[in-house]
Amino acid sequence: MKNERLRHKNIIITGASSGVGLSIAEKCATSGANVILLARRLDVLKEIQEDLQNRYSVRVMIFKLDVSDTDEVKNVFQQIFQEIGEIDILVNNAGFGIFRSAHELSIEEIKGMFSVNVMGLIACTNMVLPIMLKQGKGHIINIASQAGKIATPKSSAYAATKHAVLGFTNSLRMEVSDRNIFVTAVNPGPIETNFFKRADETGNYEKSVKRVMITPDYVASKVVGAMLTKRREINLPGWMNAGSILFALFPGLFEKAGKPFLNKK
């Protein structure tokens, strides 16, 4: 399904080489948008670039970027600005998680998650904000997680990064609310991607949530459909957000009743 609002718009997507980022890129291209794809794997991006340009006749720019390297973020975005003067949408999608008990995580692993999930997201946002403020329009979409609303065992550091993303997103939304810049948080549950190959080496968690997993295509369709609207938050699947509401209202009861399921990692 096309989003006619996106025709000829310039959309930056981080973590665009696979999973949700790739699905978002394809749906944006289908809608006639020009896409700027950022990821660490330049060889994969080149294949995606050729494919999208051939199929949709849109402009596809690619840049190798590790969002945890803030100097590299600055350099890459400056290159983008030199080639494209206006940025309509930024999708902060890059991120990863490691699911282990808190005492089993190394400080390096924790720093790595914060560097990508939080500092990388903020660095990319801070690069486009001056452009959007000058334009008097724009949309920033941050891919957070249900983990940012409900912390679970063996995801302490990962959940902390996503709580930080939601805090940043909610504050930013209020800061720019009168500047015609929209800010949207996306909180998906478990998604069928390679995320769990790194997050859960045992494979136990992936098996336990297999029946409630959603697809990257489903997430991307909801994200792209909300582009250039005032949508505050997207929770996927919708029923899962009921858990976060219950958690906010009755945290002790939720933790006690949900323990058998939450401990399946």
Rank of each mutant, 00 (worst) to 15 (best):
R40Q: 14
L42C: 14
D43E: 15
D43K: 12
L45S: 11
E47V: 08
I48V: 10
I48A: 04
Q49T: 08
Q49F: 08
Q53T: 14
R55C: 05
Y56P: 03
S57E: 14
V60P: 01
I62L: 06
K64A: 12
K64H: 11
K64P: 09
K64E: 14
L65C: 04
V67S: 02
S68W: 00
S68P: 01
S68D: 00
S68N: 02
D69F: 02
D69G: 04
E72N: 09
V73K: 00
N75K: 08
N75A: 10
V76H: 00
V76R: 00
V76E: 01
V76M: 01
F77K: 04
F77H: 06
F77Y: 05
Q79Y: 02
Q79K: 07
I80W: 00
F81N: 07
Q82G: 13
E83G: 11
E83H: 13
D88H: 11
I89Y: 06
I89V: 15
V91W: 03
A94K: 00
F99Y: 13
S101D: 13
E104T: 12
L105D: 12
S106W: 05
S106T: 15
I107M: 12
E108C: 06
E109N: 06
I110S: 09
G112I: 00
F114R: 06
S115N: 12
V116F: 01
N117E: 04
N117W: 07
M119I: 15
G120K: 01
L121A: 09
L121W: 02
L121Y: 02
I122N: 05
I122L: 13
C124R: 00
T125P: 03
N126L: 11
M127G: 03
M127W: 02
L129Q: 12
P130N: 06
P130K: 02
P130C: 07
